[in-house]
Design a binder for these strands. Structure first.
Lengths: 215, 215
DNA sequence: TGTACATCAGTGAACGCGCGTTCACTGATGTAC
DNA sequence: TGTACATCAGTGAACGCGCGTTCACTGATGTAC
């Protein structure tokens, strides 16, 4: 027993090839879109035969699931790191924006048009709530300005989703507006709906963020 | 010359069949998603052979283009009608929301994840600016509250997109926040990102709209 | 009103294509004594 | 250190499938005199 099962040469090799497969999958997605993802095309690009990929992924759906997982994991890590480096809610917003601009297709795979019939695996919802918690912490750390609204009290009655988090309902509300407003700007920007309009989307993002931080 | 060329029986029949094709196309889209749209499947559903559809659409891309056009046209008409019936910006927001909830796939076809390589035809951008104009009118009709921001003056320098509209930059700003914020809530709601969270998305939408109307 | 002709909707066969996936196999890599 | 065996990555052939699209055709509908 020189090496453990999880670190044997073969396991390491497997992990490398798996990573190379998903790397090519991301490239192909950026070129042809999420729906055009093809195992055979990826194999060809890697100089392998098509069936070879079945050593690494049980099916095409399995590969897509892995991509979704990678996308969630990457965003959660990005926010964790920013938070650990002392970023406040504004810092997290910029980390989110940078992450989205780095690879728009990755962003859309998580927050874009849903694929009918595709059901996200359980562990991605766990990562999703990691992301929520990080953002909620940052929201709760901000001083509360303005009076409580009727939506605040509605949230007080429906706060199960903020699993165990003790943030006041004002922070929950701020988290939701943070999420929806920044997603609104980002997704329209990434989808190209501002191209040709002339103004700088980064400044719209900044303006929305300003209002979020001071409300 | 009993009937004009645009109203001959044959032309009328053509228009009917075209409409039936797009009707089935929308159904298929709701079931299997935009990328799974298939001419052969539509033909089968209509009890026709596949090649028959080529009398009505030159190609699959041509059909998709028609769907995009229909979606834009439908939204523009919806907002026009609401506006003509005396709706203010808040009324337009509810018309938009109702329109989106009626057929989420239609909404996503216009504002969702872009299909790489697909270029919208010129006339849809014309309809798109009809939509903008209607919303801008409603924004300009609202009293301006709050001081001008630096983003307002940035917009003053880049207002070409508001083609010929004489709205003050504050109205342009309000239009952009209207668009991005409501799209943020709507798209996340329609994509199912709020399911299981417990709160009522309609109330979040209303809360955001309240803030838009009073800022 | 009736006949001759043109238009055009729809069919069925056929094309090439790339897809996901299976299967039996070869050959290299790692393991056990 | 060397041999015998097990594991497993990758291949090539093959499967059935549905796709978009073309083509030559039939038959019904509309038009012109």
């Amino acid at each position: 027993m020189a090496t453990t099962g999880t670190d044997s040469p073969r396991e390491r090799y497997r992990a490398q090839v798996r990573a190379e497969i998903t790397r090519h999958a991301w490239e192909q997605m950026a070129t042809a879109g999420a729906s055009a993802l093809s195992l055979n095309a990826i194999a060809k690009q890697m100089g392998m035969s098509g069936p070879a990929l079945y050593r690494y992924f049980a099916s095409r759906d399995d590969l897509i699931t892995e991509l979704v997982r990678e996308a969630y994991r990457s965003l959660a890590d990005t926010l964790h790191e920013a938070s650990a480096a002392g970023a406040d809610l504004s810092g997290l917003a910029h980390a989110l924006r940078d992450w989205a601009l780095t690879d728009p297709h990755r962003y859309f795979l998580v927050y874009g048009t849903p694929v009918p019939g595709y059901q996200a695996p359980a562990d991605t919802t766990a990562i999703s709530s990691e992301i929520m918690t990080t953002l909620l912490d940052a929201c709760a750390a901000l001083p509360r300005a303005g009076a409580a609204t009727s939506f605040d009290s509605h949230l007080e009655d429906h706060r199960d989703w903020a699993a165990g988090h003790h943030a006041p309902s004002g922070a929950l509300h701020r988290f939701l507006t943070f999420w929806t407003r920044l997603h609104g700007v980002l997704s329209l920007e990434l989808a190209g709906h501002f191209t040709g309009m002339g103004f700088d989307p980064a400044r719209l993002f900044a303006a929305e963020l300003d209002e979020l931080m001071s409300s």
